[in-house]
C-alpha cells in the first residue's frame, strides 16, 4: 500500500498512538524495577503496529477483546492514559478503581472489553460484542486480539467456528510475538501455518510483517471493510517480537542472546515508520520529534499523577460486586 492513502493527520495520529504505547511501556519497565508497581505487568513494546494498525479503523462503537498484554490495545482504542497509569498503580481513580490492575484494564465506553488474565478469555467476548452489533444492525464489528499461545486455546478455536457459522462481524488478530511465556510459537502452533488453520474454519486470513505499520494497517483496512460489508469473520496473523520479558522480572534466558537487540536495531516499527514517512517527504522529522516530546511529557505527567493519587479505601472492597443484592 502506498503511504498516500493515509492523510497527514492520519499518519500523525498513528505515530502518536504507537509512540504513546512505546513510551508508556518503556517507562513502566523502569518504574517496575523500583518496586513501586504491584502485581504482574506484561509489556506490549515491539508490538505497537498491531493495536494501532487495527484500531485506527475502528470507532468507539466497535469493540475489542484484549489479552494480559493489554496496555497497547487500551491506548490504541482510546483509553485515558492517565487513568490507565493510575489503575496500574492501584489507585482509587484508576480506570477500574484500583480493583483490576494492569491485567484487567477496561473501558466499555471506548469499546474496550478489557485486558484479560485468562489466555483465550477474549475471543468469545468479542464474538458476543459482534453478535450485539449484528443483532442491532449497527454495522459495528468486534476484534479479538490474542497471542500465539492463545491461538491454541479451545475458546479461541471455538470462537472462530462460532463466528463462522453465525457470520459474525469479528476480526481475529493473532499477535505472534514468537513466544508464549518461554515456549516458541514455531513449536506450539501445530501445523505451522496459522492462516491455513483459519482457512480450515472457513475464515479468510492473511499473514503480515508486524514490523511494518503500513502492512498491518492495509491488511486491517481490507479485513474491516470486508466485515462491514458483510463477509463475516476475517483473520490476520501478525508477526513481530516482544521487547521485554513475558512479564516484568523475566530474565528471558530462553531467548537466543541478542535477539531483542537485533530486532530493535534493524526492525523497530517506530524507526521504520519514521524512515518511511520522512524519506517520502510526507512528514518532517521535526513533526515527529514534536510528538515524541509531547508524548514523553504526557507519560511523565501520568506517572507523577499516578504516584500522587490516593489509594482506595477499605469500604471500596465490597462495592460493585453486584448492581443490587
Amino acid at each position: 500500500m502506498t503511504l498516500m492513502k493515509l492523510t497527514k493527520s492520519q499518519l500523525l495520529q498513528a505515530y502518536r498512538r504507537m509512540q504513546t504505547i512505546r513510551m508508556f511501556e518503556e517507562r513502566l519497565h523502569k518504574e517496575f524495577a523500583t518496586g513501586e508497581i504491584p502485581g504482574f505487568v506484561h509489556l506490549y513494546a515491539g508490538e505497537e503496529t498491531a493495536a494501532v494498525g487495527v484500531c485506527e479503523h475502528l470507532t468507539d462503537a466497535d469493540h475489542i477483546g484484549s489479552t494480559h498484554r493489554g496496555h497497547g490495545h487500551c491506548i490504541a482504542k482510546g483509553c485515558d492514559v492517565m487513568a490507565m497509569m493510575k489503575e496500574i498503580y492501584g489507585k482509587r481513580d484508576g480506570l477500574c478503581a484500583g480493583k483490576g490492575g494492569s491485567m484487567h484494564i477496561a473501558d466499555l465506553s471506548k469499546g474496550m472489553l478489557g485486558a484479560n488474565g485468562i489466555v483465550g478469555g477474549g475471543p468469545p467476548l468479542a464474538c458476543g460484542a459482534a453478535l450485539t452489533a449484528k443483532t442491532n444492525k449497527t454495522n459495528g464489528l468486534a476484534v479479538a486480539f490474542f497471542g500465539d499461545g492463545g491461538f491454541n486455546q479451545g475458546t479461541t478455536l471455538e470462537s472462530m467456528n462460532f463466528a463462522r457459522v453465525h457470520d459474525l462481524p469479528v476480526l481475529f488478530v493473532l499477535e505472534d510475538n514468537g513466544y508464549a511465556e518461554t515456549t516458541s510459537s514455531d513449536w506450539s502452533i501445530g501445523g505451522g501455518d496459522p492462516v491455513r488453520r483459519a482457512e480450515g474454519f472457513g475464515i479468510p486470513g492473511i499473514r503480515v510483517d508486524g514490523h511494518d505499520f503500513f502492512a498491518v494497517y492495509a491488511a486491517a483496512k481490507e479485513a474491516v471493510e470486508a466485515i462491514r460489508s458483510g463477509s463475516g469473520p476475517q483473520f490476520i496473523h501478525i508477526e513481530f517480537t516482544r521487547y521485554y520479558g513475558h512479564f516484568e522480572g523475566d530474565a528471558m534466558t530462553y531467548r537466543p542472546p541478542g535477539e531483542v537487540k537485533e530486532e530493535r536495531a534493524f526492525l523497530d516499527c517506530l524507526k521504520f515508520f519514521r524512515a518511511r514517512v520522512t524519506q517520502g517527504g510526507i512528514l518532517t522529522g521535526e513533526q515527529l520529534d514534536e510528538i515524541d516530546d509531547e508524548v514523553e511529557a504526557l507519560i511523565s505527567t501520568a506517572v507523577a499523577g499516578a504516584k500522587a493519587a490516593p489509594l482506595p479505601v477499605e469500604a471500596d472492597l465490597t462495592t460493585n460486586v453486584y448492581l443490587n443484592y
Binding site: 518461554t182 542472546p257 535477539e259
Partner: peptide
Amino acid sequence: GEDISGGMGSGGEQDAWGGV
C-alpha cells in the same frame, strides 16, 4: 504443564523456567 520446563522450540536456554 505449560512451561514446566521451558524454552520449548526456542533458541535459548532449555529448562529456562521449570514452571512459572
